[in-house]
Design a protein around this nucleic acid. Sequence first.
DNA 1: GTCTATATTTGGATAGAC
DNA 2: GTCTATCCAAATATAGAC
Lengths: 180, 180
Amino acid sequence: METFATRGYHNASLAEIAERAGLTQAGVLHHFRSKAGLLTGVLDLRDQSDIGTLGEERPRGLAFLRHLVETAARNAEREGIVRLYAVLSAESVTEGHPAQDYFRTRYEGLRGLLVEALTEAGELGEIDEGIDPVAAASAVIAVMDGLQVQWLLAPEAVDMAAVTELAITALLGRPLPEAD
Amino acid sequence: METFATRGYHNASLAEIAERAGLTQAGVLHHFRSKAGLLTGVLDLRDQSDIGTLGEERPRGLAFLRHLVETAARNAEREGIVRLYAVLSAESVTEGHPAQDYFRTRYEGLRGLLVEALTEAGELGEIDEGIDPVAAASAVIAVMDGLQVQWLLAPEAVDMAAVTELAITALLGRPLPEAD
DNA sequence: GTCTATATTTGGATAGAC
DNA sequence: GTCTATCCAAATATAGAC
């Protein structure tokens, strides 16, 4: 994870990964059939503790948006994870990238989660009728992703949580309720 | 440009670039001292026709924000350029990447341009007093960047111009004036 | 200014011993 | 399950002819 985050997929070498894991390059390939397989394994592992796989008990309505702001705040303390996703998601749009399907599916899922949360918020009367859940969903995800790159290049210049909350409240047209 | 956009920096080879340019790999290195030098050259070239280098006659106040929406619309017809910046900007956060300074400076400049435009808009009475130009600047840039990755992975699922305009109008708390 | 040739390094992957 | 040894391909960069 750390090596892919620090170097990206193509510039990461199995030799470096092996060394950091305490075995040889051939040893790594005993557990994963190829470098691409290793990347897939890393992403699958990460997924088990990530937002993209929130279960049925996930927060509903605006509480989900609040959860995203908290995620942004927590991310400011997890540079490695932020870098991993920022680097790999963008790299995945290159030709034949092994994580392309993963990120296509991930974004589709994230947009779906947000559309659902925004729709719930509408039904609960938490937000105005006029809001387009699909457009707002893309916007929220985009802000969070874009902030990560800016923050990685200049951590002192960008407050990810504050700007995320600003953008969300602006899109909703009202303040976000505090966390429980 | 096309090769770096399609493959990223590390996975692009001088051989492919040379072939597409109609000469040999050694021929390319006669004009650029190294692969990193070539990347720098590409970015410098692009800069001459790009938003980051708008001169003194750039649009002022909200007209600048309108200009950004138009850029997003135009970008939907320029996948190559979009991919170039999306891939390289994220890749630039990896260790020792040759475009790191370029993108750090670029984002700093973009934020400065946005802050200036938003400040002008405030002085012109085009937007409310309460708006924080610095936070809004980061947000606008982030939305545009984030949308590009989503759009590259699923062009049919994301309307870059519409969502950009939605986010900007939300952040401003009012509609954006039409272009001249 | 472009080429061929080559040096040198590094990469991913495989075979087979232990 | 891990290692050593090796293969093979590809990469950047340089030297020097034309």
